[in-house]
Amino acid sequence: MAVKTTPDILVCLCENCVADSGTLPRQWDQDGCHIVVRMLPCTGRTDIQYLLHAFEDGARGVCVVACPEGDCTLFEGNYRAQVRVHLAKKLLKEIGMKENQVAMLHHSPKDSTDELKEKLREMVEEMSGL
């Protein structure tokens, strides 16, 4: 049986919001879902098309992890990501999908990576139930 490498849940993670990204697993299985983490230079690089492509490929959810408001290295990347995530939610609702399938989390590099792992675990639990 071929090993699954395409994600059920895609996590787009800003590289600046985790202090030791090396310790964060890049992929894992939880609640029957395959989760894949992709690092971004800034969540301002996300685009609605990126998010929707994941759904086209069969993903059940996409999560964008950005820096706390006002803490973006590029000043406004997290704000712009929020706008795009909001728009993606709107589009999903319009086509009859659940808007909760796209989520956004905030995490500061001052917080521990374990805290982020816990947040992601909770988010995956929620999405896998959809």
């Binding site: 994600p7 895609l10 787009c12 894949v36 992709r38 971004l40 690089r45 685009d47 098309q49 990126y50 492509h53 994941a54 086209e56 490929d57």
Partner: peptide, 9 residues
């Protein structure tokens, strides 16, 4: 690429 590929960023 954005239209044709699914290489995730």
């Amino acid at each position: 690429a954005l239209h044709e590929e699914r290489g995730y960023l």
